[in-house]
Design a protein around this nucleic acid. Structure first.
Lengths: 212, 212
DNA sequence: TCATGTGAAGACATTCACAGCA
DNA sequence: TGCTGTGAATGTCTTCACATGA
């Protein structure tokens, strides 16, 4: 499959979400400049990005929403469901599962891990919570490929090492630590304080309404 | 002040965090290639980014950690404390406040807003929760410049409109909606499902250990 | 006519490579 | 000696602009 940059993938995800809303709204087709207005990417950018997924629109009707959505989804997630686990089932962990589960039919957060005995073996938001000690068994049995890290800073690196050892290939890291992992593991960092610092900077140094 | 891109700002924030750890660790000085190894940016990139903040190192010692940290902070946050408010004080909102408050002396999340009577007028994690109806008063009185949005999708746009009307200049948006705001308002979107979708893609389409 | 798909140009970001310095 | 600071080169991303097609 064609090699695509992070930026393109991020935008495709945004487009898909918009298309989903349009579809729910009963619309049939859409033009690139409409997608542009909503997502902040330029119309030319939208068309270029869509070249990657190999779906063609027509000048008169633009893009068929349903077909385009299907094409983007096939491009992004292939055929099978991707299994996700979350480590750290506190306030943050729970809100992540609560929001994400059920919203993408090809992604399923089916296991949580925590050390708190009050959470272990309970099912919260459709997600079974296991003890951290069961991590290796559960991850391998369920072929979990992606993990979300929502543990305190001091535990993050240790847990990440363990996840990598279990064969995980991608980590969405909400812990405030930069993880040191092998180069073939994909890490997306979502430190909340850093995000806030960035917004604070641009709130005070206006930047001219850009997309990102 | 010099105009700087989002990427540079994001990296400066990462460097600063690393410097903070080094300082806590008792270190005095650091070389660009060390910062590089930790943060994932190349050494040349680190040096280029630091040109923006106007701090100079020396060939033999590298950068003085404390002075460099100060310079970066002055560059990022100017002199005064920036006031932040959070709207939506559920699981997610609480965990954001819990993690962020007290970790950057120039950023303070001092007000929360919610509609739940059980939360209103309580102080949680050092943050006073007000009714949504008090938003305008509180924001103007406290000169709040930045808001964090952690409300359900259906309320997000309405709340954002209100925040903009109150004079907010930047929004950190955890709600799963793309906000439509005037061009001079800076928005950073942190949709959690989209983040997960991105990780899932690159977990299956290896990308060669890149920074971002 | 009006939007798509896309070569080519342009803008932006990163890396190279080396002079200069302590 | 070995690092910084930085022009110049390279590489990547975005926009332009237009031929094409319904």
């Amino acid at each position: 499959m064609k090699q695509v940059s992070e930026k393109v993938v991020s935008r495709l995800i945004i487009y898909r979400k918009y298309l989903k809303e349009l579809l729910a709204d009963g619309q049939k087709s859409i033009f690139s400049h409409k997608i542009s207005a909503y997502t902040g990417a330029s119309a030319a950018q939208v068309r270029r990005d869509l070249m990657n997924v190999g779906y063609n629109g027509t000048p008169v009707k633009g893009y068929n929403i349903k077909d385009l959505m299907t094409s983007i989804s096939e491009f992004l997630e292939k055929e099978n469901t991707i299994e996700v686990a979350i480590v750290g089932f506190g306030n943050l962990g729970k809100s992540i599962v609560d929001y994400c589960n059920g919203r993408n039919s090809r992604l399923s957060i089916s296991a949580a891990f925590d050390t708190d005995p009050n959470k272990i073996n309970r099912v919260i938001h459709g997600c079974h919570c296991y003890a951290n000690t069961e991590m290796e068994t559960i991850i391998k049995e369920n072929k979990v490929e992606v993990a979300i890290l929502a543990v305190p800073r001091e535990d993050a690196q240790k847990v990440a090492d363990k996840l990598v050892a279990c064969g995980i290939k991608g980590i969405l890291n909400y812990s405030p630590t930069r993880l040191q992992v092998p180069a073939n593991i994909y890490v997306e960092n979502r430190d909340m304080l850093m995000a806030l610092e960035k917004v604070a900077y641009f709130a005070n140094n206006v930047h001219g309404g850009k997309n990102k």
